[in-house]
Simulated scan of single mutants.
Amino acid sequence: MAAVMDDSSRMWITAVPPFGPDEIGVLLALDGESADSGEQAALRLLDRGHEGEEGVFYLLPFDLSARYTRTGDRLAVALVAPRAVLDEELVGAGGQLGEGADEWVTLLRRELVTDFEPVEQDGEKQAVLLIDHLGPVRTLDELFARFEAGDSGIAVLNAQ
């Protein structure tokens, strides 16, 4: 797993060590030092998670969710949050999102070329995994090493 991290997408189709080698899924990396406001909002919402296995957080779908879309050979994942949840978080930080027509706000969108199709089970789409970290990483192995060292966490997001 020595793939070079592409800062423009930071999205992989891979197995994640804590979940085992047989569970292939979509993984997004979120950098706590990113200047991207959507990425920072998503990271802030991770604090609303509930811890499962050590270092693994599960988020409620009405706090933060993922949406899959496919266009040709490209799979895209968008992280979305309800406007009301964002307003609640931003007011606590001294800001406000403002008015908008959509109930759900897209925080970030990443895509890659792949033939991978997220599986559905009992009508539910496969969850998206997030690994939060501080500062740039060069490889997927380095990202996983930070998790193993306790320097990052994994969040499990329901997908719509």
Rank of each mutant, 00 (worst) to 15 (best):
L129Q: 01
F57T: 04
A149T: 11
D122L: 13
G95I: 10
G153L: 10
Y68S: 09
V4T: 14
G38C: 04
P118R: 02
E23W: 04
T114V: 05
E88H: 12
F19E: 11
A3F: 10
R83N: 08
R70V: 15
I13P: 01
V26L: 02
G100D: 04
E53M: 14
E33K: 13
E88L: 12
V156D: 02
S34N: 03
V80L: 15
L43S: 02
E53K: 10
E117D: 14
A2M: 04
A81I: 10
L140F: 04
A42F: 03
W12H: 04
S34L: 11
I154C: 03
A3H: 10
P61M: 02
E120P: 06
G123Q: 05
E142L: 14
S9Y: 09
A76I: 07
A159M: 02
D141Q: 11
D102M: 02
D36N: 14
L64F: 09
N158S: 15
A2Y: 01
H50V: 13
V16H: 07
A3K: 08
E23S: 05
P21T: 11
S65T: 15
E148W: 05
L75I: 00
V77A: 01
Q160E: 13
A15F: 06
N158K: 11
I131E: 00
G32S: 01
L28C: 10
A93I: 10
I131S: 03
L45H: 00
E23P: 01
Y68F: 13
A35R: 08
G25H: 02
V128K: 02
R110P: 07
R138D: 15
R48Y: 13
A35Q: 08
I13D: 04
V77Q: 03
A2F: 00
H133A: 08
S65H: 00
L60K: 06
L90G: 09
A2D: 06
E51R: 04
I24E: 07
V91H: 08
E124V: 12
M5F: 11
A127R: 01
S34E: 04
E88N: 11
A3E: 12
V105R: 01
L79E: 03
F62Q: 15
E88G: 06
L140M: 03
S34I: 09
G135F: 03
R146E: 13
V156H: 04
G95S: 14
D87P: 06
D36K: 06
